[in-house]
Simulated scan of single mutants.
Amino acid sequence: MYTPDVVDVGSPLISEEAFARLRAARHGDPDSIPAALATRTRRPLVRGDGRLFIVAADHPARGALGVRKDPMAMASRYELLQRLALALSRPGVDGVLGTPDVIEDLALLGLLDDRIAVGSMNRGGLRGAVFEMDDRYTGYDVESMVDSRLDAAKLLVRINLKDPATAATMEATARAVTASAKARLPIMLEPFISEWVDGRVVNDLSTEAVISSVAIASGLGAASAYSWMKLPVVPDMARVMEATTLPTLLLGGDSEGDPEAMYVSWANALQLPGVHGLIVGRTLLYPQDDDVAKAVDIAASLVHGN
């Protein structure tokens, strides 16, 4: 039986030997994957100050590999895992969000102990595809997340009033929310009002559109007891947060923008009632100065005040 390699949090770089064991486990001992998930040390979703800082790594499964001007920045799984290992070693980082392939790699590497593991249900409507608004879920489902002992679920729900595929997306989302509530599995909904613009799907980030998306998403499913919101930081976030009583995490901003302005916008939004933390991915894992530890530490200080 494969034994997960525990990376010393004082030295976040994963050794080549650890990667070799990871490949060997996937090749010759697939049972070691559920075993690693079954034996990892779990923690409560909410503890201490009640705030959460989650690093997101579900972009590759959507084919979204680009960061700024490099369209293949996230192409190397090994580099991504190294950056995730570094991020997860930093104080104040509560956990990670990923699709099954990423979560299972991290579990085999022993990097999920005492960390929140959020399963991404992913989306089938790939950017640029003719079927982009056919956003059926293609990653985790509630049953598999419960079986894998994950701590929360996450889904994206794009609402396009001029595309009939939205109806099926909303129905599937409602079923997922209902199933999560029945399983007592917290589920994070990331809603957007979207539209076709010159053959591309564009999310409307106006304050009014975000408020509308929150109102629609909050009502999906037969119960909302385990529903959370995952929302962008937009102008007049106070009005956005008045639209819901659901606990909310903020998602990252434009990785091409001014980092200082981004941090200020996060800091301001984190002070609002109902906002309980951040879920950020490429902006912190691939920062403009490539200093992952620095970017993660700044974000952690904004969330936890350390």
Score class of each variant (00 low, 15 high):
residue 300 A to Y: 00
residue 247 P to T: 00
residue 165 A to I: 01
residue 92 G to A: 00
residue 95 G to I: 01
residue 299 A to G: 03
residue 264 V to D: 05
residue 123 R to A: 14
residue 166 T to I: 01
residue 66 G to N: 11
residue 114 D to W: 10
residue 118 V to Q: 02
residue 196 W to G: 04
residue 139 G to T: 13
residue 45 L to A: 00
residue 51 R to E: 03
residue 204 D to K: 12
residue 178 T to W: 05
residue 230 K to R: 09
residue 201 V to P: 03
residue 249 L to T: 08
residue 208 E to C: 10
residue 5 D to A: 14
residue 94 D to E: 06
residue 12 P to F: 09
residue 41 T to G: 10
residue 182 K to P: 05
residue 96 V to R: 02
residue 105 D to Q: 12
residue 49 D to Q: 02
residue 15 S to D: 04
residue 247 P to A: 09
residue 70 D to C: 04
residue 162 K to D: 13
residue 41 T to N: 11
residue 117 A to M: 08
residue 189 L to T: 09
residue 54 I to L: 15
residue 254 D to K: 06
residue 102 V to R: 07
residue 131 F to A: 13
residue 14 I to M: 09
residue 256 E to L: 09
residue 64 A to M: 12
residue 293 A to F: 04
residue 29 D to I: 05
residue 158 R to W: 12
residue 94 D to G: 03
residue 301 S to F: 00
residue 299 A to Y: 02
residue 288 Q to L: 09
residue 249 L to V: 15
residue 48 G to I: 06
residue 228 W to L: 11
residue 25 A to D: 09
residue 25 A to E: 03
residue 193 I to P: 07
residue 61 A to V: 15
residue 232 P to I: 12
residue 38 A to W: 03
residue 48 G to A: 12
residue 13 L to V: 15
residue 27 H to W: 09
residue 48 G to F: 06
residue 306 N to C: 02
residue 79 E to S: 10
residue 254 D to G: 06
residue 204 D to F: 11
residue 254 D to R: 12
residue 16 E to H: 13
residue 238 A to Y: 08
residue 73 A to Y: 05
residue 55 V to H: 01
residue 117 A to G: 14
residue 143 E to D: 15
residue 278 L to Y: 00
residue 115 R to A: 04
residue 120 S to A: 15
residue 208 E to H: 15
